[in-house]
Amino acid sequence: MIGKTLVVGGELTVRRLGYGTAQLTGPGYWGPRGDTRDAVAVLRRAVERGVTLIDTADNYGPSLAEELVAEALHPYPQGLLIATKGGVVRTGDSAWHVDGRPDRLRAMCEASLRRLRLDTIDLYQLHRLDPAVPMADQLGALDELRAEGKIRHLGLDTVTAEQLMSAVELTEIAAVQNRYNLLDRASEPLLRLCEARGIAFLPWFPLGNGTLTTDPVCTSIAAAHGATPAQIALSWLLHHSPVLCPTPGTGTLAHLEENLDAAAVHLTEDETARLDALG
């Protein structure tokens, strides 16, 4: 029996299928995607379906995704965890710039607070470690914001197990995000470290950016369940580790429903073994 919930930071209980907002923006996470009313409808439906973790970032749009979250969901229902990220600046469609200077991290966090209409961000994630700034300075800046009550818990995005070990020596880390899915398990050592330390792991590209939907093993198992390959891939994540909390994103109601229905797919031991063998 797979666990349906996960505790983040030792205190915030969330359901183990969240919703990621990147697909509410245009190609390359730049500019708007379609009608704002459609994005608002998707966000509201996610919460109606029981989603308790919304994952966004200041550079999706940029700024647009956070604004949509607030437009759709503020005032936020009790128990809804809003997670966002800072530390990467967008200056164009394909222009991403890591910036972990303490003053910039503070400015980015405070801008996210305003857009999200929050006094405290439940989970604020450093979107990338800046190699030009000591880790202690970057995490120290976020620790100051936490001491001021502007952040409740800290997270890291795209790190190695070694970097996480260094980070937890400096401060408490509640969550990580790395690319991880059925066919891409390069972050397995990081996942095992998260399990040992009780750190939530929010895998990005949990569906391999669409590649898993055509995998023949997923397709075969999906047919046996009357499910889709994407649902099988998400179900595998839920079975694979109790700290995994996928946050698949979509801009359509139909795809949202499909993703969330994956929680009802229960794989057999044989099916799980077949999927495990793909890695």
Rank of each mutant, 00 (worst) to 15 (best):
L6N: 12
V8L: 14
G10V: 11
V14F: 13
R16L: 05
L17F: 13
Y19L: 14
Y19K: 01
L24K: 01
G26N: 08
G26C: 14
G28Q: 08
G28D: 03
G28V: 01
W30D: 09
G34S: 04
R37D: 15
A41N: 12
R45C: 07
A46M: 05
V47F: 11
V47E: 09
E48I: 09
E48T: 07
T52W: 10
D55Y: 07
D55W: 03
D55L: 07
Y60A: 08
S63A: 14
L64N: 04
A70E: 10
E71Q: 14
E71L: 10
L73I: 02
L73Y: 01
P75K: 08
Q78M: 11
Q78V: 13
L81R: 01
G87I: 00
D93C: 10
A95N: 09
W96D: 14
V98N: 00
D103W: 06
D103P: 00
L105H: 02
A107Q: 13
C109A: 15
C109L: 12
A111L: 04
L113T: 08
R117T: 06
L118Q: 09
L118K: 07
P131A: 01
V133I: 14
V133N: 05
V133D: 03
A136W: 00
D137Q: 06
L139W: 00
L142T: 00
L145N: 03
G149T: 10
I151Q: 01
H153A: 15
G155T: 02
T158W: 12
T158I: 11
V159A: 03
T160K: 10
Q163G: 03
M165S: 13
S166N: 11
S166R: 12
V168A: 04
N178S: 11
N181Y: 09
N181V: 04
N181F: 04
L182S: 01
A186R: 14
E188A: 11
L190E: 05
L190Y: 13
L191P: 04
R192H: 08
E195Q: 14
A196M: 15
I199L: 05
L202F: 11
G208A: 06
N209F: 02
G210F: 07
L212W: 05
T214A: 15
T214Q: 12
D215P: 01
S220K: 15
I221P: 06
I221A: 01
A222G: 02
A224K: 15
T228D: 12
P229C: 07
P229V: 00
A230F: 03
P242C: 05
P246G: 09
P248D: 13
T250C: 15
G251A: 15
L256H: 08
N259V: 06
L260D: 00
L260E: 01
L260N: 04
A263N: 04
T268M: 12
D270K: 07
E271L: 09
D276E: 11
D276M: 07
A277T: 05
